[in-house]
Amino acid sequence: MGIYNWLVYVWGKMPILLEGALLTVQLTAIAVGFGFIIGIFAGMGRISKNRLIKSISVIYIDFIRGTPLLVQILIVYMGLPQIIGRPIPAMVAAIVSLSINSGAYVAEIVRSGIQSIDKGQTEAARSLGMTHSQTMIHIILPQAVRRIIPPLGNEFIAMLKDSSLVSVIALEELMRKAQLIYTRDYRPFDILIAASIIYLIMTLSISKLVRFSERRLRTSDK
């Protein structure tokens, strides 16, 4: 009886929850997308010989990875408006804070990916007269990207879960939708279990996808 009851109730709320889930996926994809671009540069900066670039990258990475995402979201949403003198829309604040956060984690993935490429590759390229940046672009990054796809998939999964934190700035993604429903219906257990299952389905499908692309890359990279 309980399960049937739950199914009927949750089924009725499904359109709202799925609407939230769609925003969750969109937010995550945008954040990891921007995060990837930021991460490539920050990751290369982290191992740069230029002291200034290196320091900026290290400070950025350490600051973001060493402070809670919740604090970062609130700094952008509540803190920045105090400085610039006008409000920041929740959507913009969410994308900015999640992207900056993701960028720091991607940077570490990129750094370890670059450093995992054998030094001989750089030496061979440089001995042919290629510049440092030509070597990066044509030799190191293409090989590093193949290696960082699995950890990047994990980062996507982590970001998908962490994006639930933007519910605190009233952005109506999956978690916020769930909260809105249970504060009205007083059935938090039912709705939170439903939300968990939706999160679980999303994360499991992504890890499936990552494993599939990993296998594809391995066969094309004999």
């Binding site: 390229a125 440089r126 990279d221």
Partner: peptide, 29 residues
């Protein structure tokens, strides 16, 4: 970089670029 274009180097561990075909390995530089 300019000087190196005039001197080839062959390594103990080959250091071919594994993500490129033999032809691309040779034509890239």
């Amino acid at each position: 970089d300019l000087v190196r274009t005039n001197m080839g180097m062959v390594f103990q561990n080959f250091n071919l670029f594994p993500h490129m075909s033999v032809l691309d390995n040779i034509t890239l530089a």
